[in-house]
Amino acid sequence: MTATPVAPATPAAPATRSWVALALLHTRFQLLETVRVPIAVIGNLLFPGIALLFFVVPQPAVAGEPLAAVAAVAQLGTFAVMSACLFTLGAGVAEDRQLAFDPYVRTLPAGAGPRLTGRIVTGVLFCLSAQVPVLLIALLLTEASTSPWRVLGGLAMIPVIAVPFLLLGLAIGYAFPAKAALAVIQVVLFPLAFAGGLFLPPELFPGWLDGLSQALPSRAARDVVVQVTTGADGSAVALPVLLAWTAVFAVLAVLAYRSDEGRRFR
């Protein structure tokens, strides 16, 4: 039997959909998949709020002091960002890599850019939504007060401080299988949060811990947010430290992503 060559039905050059349309598509489905597992959403929303209720509200020295209360809220807001980034990207990527659907999606006509953008936008939206309970509790149950511009400035800092943790999440997600990724995230998240002064203000740290703390990405993110929201003068090294960690995590994320391709199909 001879196959007759058939002229292509549509002679037009193949064209992918626009980058923005594809990024929106992937964002929509990332959000949809995440929302379908309500416990993930609720956990993400509640934990920083509960921490605020337990650690801050009962302490009059902090909750009753407008500036100290704002700093405490900024700390837990920063923690919410860290945890949302590490869990949505780290655990999310690691879980998806175990599904056969992930390599299938990579055969569709979209590059890595729109797919990663979908994840990152979802991560940032989670970071923002996690601020809602924190801000509500702060408003209703503490004396926290600052100017509306400073509140907006704090919210605007979220995407900035989210970037290094999104990259760290990606590095973990591509480097570890799902179960290990969850464990690694917890091992990374809580010590970083504690030593970074997100649960206890760094003013209470002994000198050696405060020094160490200043070199951590969590402390740098916290300092940046506290400076923006309270207007207090803070450490000059915070922003450079944050940028340096961003570069380190970017390299780790790229390395993990590259080595993943070599390993997955063996």
Partner: peptide, 16 residues
């Protein structure tokens, strides 16, 4: 990605 506009493939059914 432009090459893959003309491609159709299947996921493994366990991976949906």
């Amino acid at each position: 990605p432009a090459a893959r506009v003309g491609l159709g493939s299947t996921p493994q059914e366990t991976g949906l």
